[in-house]
């Protein structure tokens, strides 16, 4: 396990446009390996737009233009000969609202390995158990793996979605406000889980809650109106912000 700060992902001069609307302006940052980086800022500041650029989710939507360089282990993920599908295999994503497929719990977790070529049922069961255990959901669902995932509670569904991502063994996990639709108890379970995940994965998480960012992240980036204002170790951002605007936000002077 690495304790030094290897750089996992690197973003240089990223610009994102929705049609003619300039949503991200010249953002550059580096994501250290095996840590949690939080992206904070008021709603509409572009933090979700930013995180979706990190695994080329914008490719799915027409009228979105992404410019700049995003590298994973030094390789430009927007290079011409790079298949976005393999990029998303290496960089998984958990969304704001839990989005389990309308299939059984097992099928949800087995989906990823299956599409990547795992056929054996025994192997799939192993992967499912390991991923569900890792997502701290195994004990709650082990007796009903064949039940529909939609029967689970919101918090369980979100942990299932995390297990689903773990099952494809990505290197980076992006999370777009993964707890915003959950109650406080479910939220704290997700937060514990994230703390656990950073041992094996690099995590980038968008959150609207500064407390959450303070609790779980090692580094924090603050966005405002499409601009990356400040980035640094979470402790520094919260206790000695360099920029006036960061300070205003931290102290609650923006909505």
């Amino acid at each position: 396990m690495t304790t030094t700060t290897e750089i996992k992902m690197c973003v240089e001069d990223l610009n994102v446009y929705y049609g003619s609307f300039h949503a991200i302006k010249d953002a550059s940052l580096q994501v250290p390996e095996n840590g949690v980086m939080a992206l904070i800022g008021p709603s509409g500041c572009g933090k979700s737009t930013f995180i979706r650029a990190l695994n080329r989710m914008h490719d799915l939507v027409p009228d979105v233009t992404v410019q700049g360089r995003v590298t994973l282990d030094g390789e430009d993920i927007y290079a011409k000969d790079v298949d976005p599908v393999t990029i998303r295999h290496r960089i998984g994503m958990v969304f704001q609202r839990p989005n389990p497929f309308p299939k059984s719990i097992f099928e949800n977790v087995a989906y990823g390995p299956r599409i990547h070529g795992v056929r054996s049922r025994k192997r799939l069961l192993e992967i499912a158990e390991r991923s569900l255990r890792h997502a701290a959901l195994w004990d709650e669902v082990k007796d009903r793996l064949d039940k529909s995932a939609l029967e689970l509670s919101g918090g369980q569904q979100q942990r299932l979605c995390i297990a689903r991502v773990l099952a494809v063994e990505p290197e980076v996990i992006l999370m777009d406000e993964p707890a915003s639709a959950l109650d406080p108890i479910a939220t704290s379970k997700i937060e514990d889980l994230i703390g656990d995940l950073k041992k094996d994965y690099t995590v980038v998480i968008v959150t609207h809650s500064m407390q959450q960012a303070a609790r779980i992240s090692d580094n924090t980036a603050f966005f405002l109106m499409g601009e990356l204002i400040e980035i640094g170790p979470t402790r520094d951002i919260f206790f000695k912000p360099q920029d006036k605007r960061t300070e205003d936000y931290i102290t609650g002077r923006y909505g």
Partner: peptide, 15 residues
């Protein structure tokens, strides 16, 4: 490289 083969096959099927 089995995974590379697999990825190529998936891409072909998709195309």
């Amino acid at each position: 490289m089995a995974t590379a083969n697999l990825a190529a096959r998936r891409r072909t099927v998709n195309n």
